[in-house]
Design a protein around this nucleic acid. Structure first.
Lengths: 223, 223
DNA sequence: ACAATAATATGACGATCGTAATCTAAAAAG
DNA sequence: CTTTTTAGATTACGATCGTCATATTATTGT
């Protein structure tokens, strides 16, 4: 019959997934769904929620748009799920990182220029502000997770220390997000874009070095 | 003739502009154009560049969509102009403001909850990052203007002081923008949204108070 | 006063949007 | 083996998108 044609299509579209049949294993379907979410997470970060249509999105994942509503109730649902996925990735990457290390990686040209791979907060935070409460809730949860991942391990959780640490990471995160977003709003490769990044990175790191009251290393750290 | 009817329509639609005729005074046309730009600037800040269509935009300004392309070459052109308009308004408002005063007003609930009236950078910076180089250039110019407006008047422009002041305002701006955007990405009225705002405002003001090397007031300022 | 101009209204174009109905055939259930 | 279920393909719907063509008529230039 037309099996050869199907195989041909398969090779042309998604060699990884490898199937274009009508019905698919339950495990395969789950995997396909995850792949759609991952693709959406990247595309949304690159072009914004309104910048990617359902059809284009499915095509980028290697499918036609028809099956979309077998996986998600609406585009808004996928937006929330893709955002949650991206946010959890960022939190996982930050896990165990020293705040200074986080800032070095976050407030960098590589991060600024790699929207699709970068932080969902910096890429879609502006869009999220105009979306549904559901999506904003996902963002808040993602932010909380990131804060937790960044909070230095306070084995003796004296309430004052804990609160101070939380305030510190909140401030560092907002500061870093602002630096990336401001830099991205400038023309690619413009001096101002780089200046913003360099100035902010330096200032954030300085405030971190000085704000360490645990290790009272004022100007000359450990000798 | 039908002047009475025109007046009636006028009252129903845009009492300010006052005319619905086909042809209009050159001055009136200019005023109409400015009104369209102002309306667009507000609507874009509230709903994003992709969230407002040309027809809806013109209707909000009191016109039909037909005349749009007599005023602007494309929607992208209006986006750039509306952004420039909003950015210059922000810079004008910041003119002569002490950095601390700026932060008090900028990192506030009123600003966060008033997108349409607030800073264009915070409202559209995320969108601008995905737009054309022309629009990004407008943003960079607007940011530069805001930096200049915020820079304390260095009457003796020693290069070192000047550069330090510039670094300070760049850092404060990015920090403030990040605080607003992060807070706006959280659900309306959520504790985290307010916490971000309060923590960041406090930290930014603290860094300003401490960073003042001109007035060497370390802990106890002027006596 | 007359002719040329241009700001607005009306209507329509093709493209794309999110969503859904229908079809197909293989996987899952019996 | 038979039946049911369902992932994905195909097709299509109505709405909206940015843009443009045309008509109208008061203003502007002469």
């Amino acid at each position: 019959m037309s099996i050869d044609i199907y195989v041909c299509w398969t090779v042309e579209r998604r060699p990884t997934k490898g199937r274009l049949d009508m019905r698919v294993t339950k495990a395969q379907a789950e995997q396909n769904r995850a792949h759609i979410v991952a693709t959406a997470s990247r595309l949304f970060r690159e072009r914004g929620y309104d910048g990617v249509g359902v059809a284009e999105l499915m095509a980028a994942a290697g499918f036609t748009h028809g099956g979309f509503y077998k996986h998600f109730r609406s585009k808004a649902d996928l937006m929330a799920e893709a955002s949650a996925s991206g946010l959890s990735t960022t939190a996982a990457r930050a896990e165990g990182l020293d705040p200074a290390e986080f800032v070095e990686r976050y407030v960098s040209r590589e991060h600024r220029d790699g929207r699709g791979d970068g932080c969902t907060i910096a890429a879609l935070g502006g869009d999220a502000a105009r979306q549904s409460a559901d999506l904003k809730t996902e963002f808040a949860a993602g932010i909380e997770n990131l804060l937790t991942a960044l909070q230095p391990p306070t084995d003796t959780p004296g309430d004052a220390d804990q609160r101070a640490a939380r305030m510190m990471v909140i401030d560092v995160l907002a500061h870093s997000v602002g630096a990336i977003m401001l830099s991205r709003a400038c023309p690619d490769g413009s001096p101002l874009a780089d200046e913003i990044l360099d100035v902010c990175r330096k200032e954030i790191l300085a405030s971190l070095a000085q704000g360490n009251s645990d290790q009272p290393a004022a100007s000359s750290p450990e000798a």
